[in-house]
């Protein structure tokens, strides 16, 4: 008994020291630009009231503005998307939100390339983990989706810092975090918008498009990762079981990329199949009639991501389409049978 007490005291000491140390490192080294702090602040404020959730990858995170959607639909919405979010992360994140909020609608944006990948980036898991409020949800996510080898990296910020010796950065970072600008969020330095939305560009309507990468057509239904597809379906089933409406959204990509990829039809057919199977709505914005004029290259910050101006336009369009869908209107007035870029060819 004496030994147990002795060991317990020492274990508590270790846990306390590691927790305090990790918090200090987090404060010093986590870049002020990192959206997670603001996201969690907003989540806490709105906890228990969220009705609409946008979830998926960075295309959703940067492409849908909850603020505009709230105005358009009169709802309380939140953007839970994160970079490279995998389907198992989506499932856990969504269930953690739905358990604490009266969620009615989920806009689910799945990036086709992430349905194929076998190499799951640990960094993407960190982003999902950090957006969970409850320790039970976090633990369940770790056990279910992360190999134990990744646990220290995912749970402790001090293991994620890449350069401990960049003291200039630390000085500027801390200085800014202590400033009013940081607290009030009124600055061009912060790219976090609101309710989980994050935009890369500083200005609201930056017209410059930077083409980061060119990718070849890779999407084939046969090469979809079975485990990811299972989680995709599990997410939809979870929503249906909990009377949550699922709207599957394929975010618009730039014309340059559409022309280069050439597999937009394959992607559309794959998602249509899933939507039909589960009888849910599917809005493919690469089949949007006014795609070329509404989402020209000026609306993107790179091939895959809308800029803030593009996001504002897109959110309005999405709200309009969704309202029409709810009113039982014909969706053919918005969408074509094929991608407009292919018709133009």
């Amino acid at each position: 008994m004496h030994n147990i007490k002795k060991i317990a005291i020492r274990l508590v000491l270790i846990i306390v020291v590691v927790t305090v140390y990790d918090s200090i490192i987090d404060y010093l080294y986590r870049p002020y630009k990192d959206s997670v702090t603001y996201t969690m602040q907003d989540r806490k404020k709105l906890e228990g009231t969220l009705e609409t959730v946008f979830i998926g990858t960075s295309r959703v995170q940067r492409g849908i503005s909850p603020e505009i959607m709230n105005e358009e639909l009169g709802t309380v919405s939140f953007n839970m998307a994160t970079s490279l979010q995998l389907m198992d992360g989506t499932y856990h994140l969504l269930s953690s939100v739905a358990e604490e909020n009266p969620v009615e609608t989920v806009f689910l944006g799945v990036a086709p390339e992430l349905m194929l990948s076998d190499n799951d980036a640990t960094r993407s898991k960190v982003l999902v983990y950090e957006r969970m409020m409850d320790w039970k949800d976090r633990l369940s996510y770790l056990i279910d989706c992360c190999p134990m080898q990744e646990w220290p990296y995912i749970t402790l910020y001090s293991t994620q810092v890449e350069d401990y010796f960049d003291f200039d950065f630390v000085e500027k970072n801390v200085e800014f975090k202590q400033s009013e600008e940081y607290k009030t969020r009124k600055t061009g330095k912060i790219r976090y918008r609101n309710n989980g939305m994050y935009s890369l560009k500083k200005s609201t309507d930056d017209p410059q498009v930077t083409f980061l990468e060119k990718k070849e057509s890779i999407f084939q239904p046969s090469s979809v990762n079975k485990e990811k597809e299972e989680y995709f379906k599990k997410t939809i089933e979870y929503c249906k079981e909990n009377n949550i409406e699922v709207v599957l959204v394929n975010m618009p990509i730039s014309g340059n990329l559409i022309e280069e990829l050439g597999d937009v039809t394959t992607i559309h057919d794959y998602y249509s199949g899933i939507a039909e199977e589960y009888e849910i709505a599917f809005f493919d914005f690469n089949y949007y009639k006014k795609l070329e004029e509404t989402f020209d290259n000026q609306r993107f910050e790179n091939e895959k991501h809308l800029n803030y101006g593009g996001a504002k336009v897109f959110t309005k369009v999405l709200a309009e389409v969704y309202k029409s869908y709810q009113n039982g209107e014909d969706m053919n007035k918005y969408f074509m049978d094929t991608c407009p870029y292919y018709v133009a060819e």
Partner: peptide, 9 residues
Amino acid sequence: LTFGVFDTG
């Protein structure tokens, strides 16, 4: 925790 390599890659 600080100097160790935790990136599982």
